[in-house]
Design a protein around this nucleic acid. Structure first.
Lengths: 246, 246
DNA sequence: TGTACATCAGTGAACGCGCGTTCACTGATGTAC
DNA sequence: TGTACATCAGTGAACGCGCGTTCACTGATGTAC
């Protein structure tokens, strides 16, 4: 609903009824596609099924999307945006303590994944065979990582180093790789902090997927407590102030 | 190649030629199916495509497997076994130090995943829509977890506690969940150790998938150094002796 | 050792279904004068 | 305000392809006597 309002608001006043219907239908098609996604999975997303759900003829969809892959791309970008929005909102509401912020955004990411499992699988599951993501999706894909950076940057300003409980050794090869990561998502921070940031980010995505995809076994109960404990451990690893009680 | 020998050796001496051909063809069908898996993904694995690859008619495959799902199940079980074998072999060759054993098995798991990415996706990627894994796959799916337990058990014997650098707080709900995990895969160990063991296991699976599935971005180079650093960090977290130089 | 029979592997045709994409078309909505 | 024209949405048929699974069958291999 939020996004439909956005579309309405950003349209110029001269927009005619046809354009407004078009925007609304575009939104509905994506909604129908998400419903299909949940049934069939990304690899088997079928334009004809989406069209049936819309009570349209399959060829009509080509007025809105260039084909199956274009529709998939739109869904991927919006999924990245949605999970990014959820994480950012949680961060905003968490107060200033970095530890609390990290816990809040991690929990929000997990909650979003359980609300929209097929969309989580779409962006963080196995790649869709035969689908090549265009460059548009990349910027959207780094939002959580950049959010983590914002959490880290106050704690680990390069001019005022906070001690770390466990610091991984940095050899030249790792240093090169970390420099690249710094360019993409992290600011000027010590190699040790960037490395632990990557570990924390990797852990977050991995913990959500492992639990959601059922790799603890099919009869394993959802483990909020375990997820929290792991998240807190990575927060302690990053020496985030306020993590202990979060 | 190893598995074909195994099949031959465990057959009784009275086995006739027909049974031997059957075992060999069963093996070849699975091999062809793995090749198809790499092209199309698990969701789109096609019996007809496998048959074409075997120069057989599709219906002939029903002499060997009850259908598409039965074939998938066989592939899943063998993939779990293969990655388990790789991890166990690495562990065996790593010497006695728990730190070195953990590094060795983690690296072996990552190497196997890069050797057989479609098989990794089959067992640790998003679930195949419409496919329900039978109980047979479960025991195979816990092998890596149980291997980690064997690494942990000497370091953290319950009667001779080793201090942990970071110990997550254990509340009653977490305690209940951890008791269940202990029953499935871990032996009698302190809750803190089991919790960190789950964190380490989760991290291992997550780190391999995040890198393999390209979630660091498409132009990110494979990051052995980063993977090693993360693995070493979890080893330090678990206080595994010998981890520093491994 | 030889023969009659049972078992099994693989064939080929068919059923009934799905898919993405193209194309010429109808009819409604919007625009310019 | 009214009319001629352009734009656009959606239709329906078609192309050429894919799929899993069933079934009656042929012919080869193995078994029992």
């Amino acid at each position: 609903m939020f996004s439909s309002w956005t579309i309405v608001l950003i349209m110029p006043a001269s927009t005619n009824a046809r354009a407004r219907v078009r925007a609304e239908l575009t939104r509905e098609i994506k909604e129908a596609a998400r419903a299909e996604l949940a049934l069939a999975g990304a690899g088997a997303l079928s334009l004809r099924a989406v069209a049936r759900r819309m009570d349209m003829v399959p060829s009509a969809l080509y007025r809105y999307f260039d084909g199956r892959d274009a529709l998939l791309t739109a869904l991927i970008i919006e999924a990245y945006q949605a999970v990014g929005d959820a994480a950012e909102a949680a961060d905003r509401d968490a107060g200033p303590a970095p530890g609390r912020r990290w816990m809040a955004m991690g929990r929000a990411v997990r909650a979003w994944a359980w609300d929209y499992p097929s969309q989580w699988a779409l962006i963080y599951g196995s790649p869709v065979p035969g689908y090549q993501a265009p460059a548009d999706t990349l910027e959207a894909g780094t939002r959580i990582l950049r959010l983590l950076t914002r959490v880290l940057v106050d704690t680990h300003r390069i001019d005022r180093p906070t001690p770390l409980p466990i610091a991984p050794a940095i050899d030249p090869e790792l240093h090169r790789w970390l420099s690249m990561a710094q360019d993409v998502a992290f600011g000027p921070m010590r190699d040790e902090v960037v490395a632990l940031g990557v570990v924390a980010y990797t852990y977050l995505l991995g913990a959500v997927s492992v639990e959601l995809f059922g790799q603890f076994g099919p009869d394993a109960t959802p483990a909020v407590a375990m997820f929290d404990a792991g998240l807190r451990t990575t927060g302690l690893l990053l020496a985030l102030p306020g993590i202990a009680g979060a």
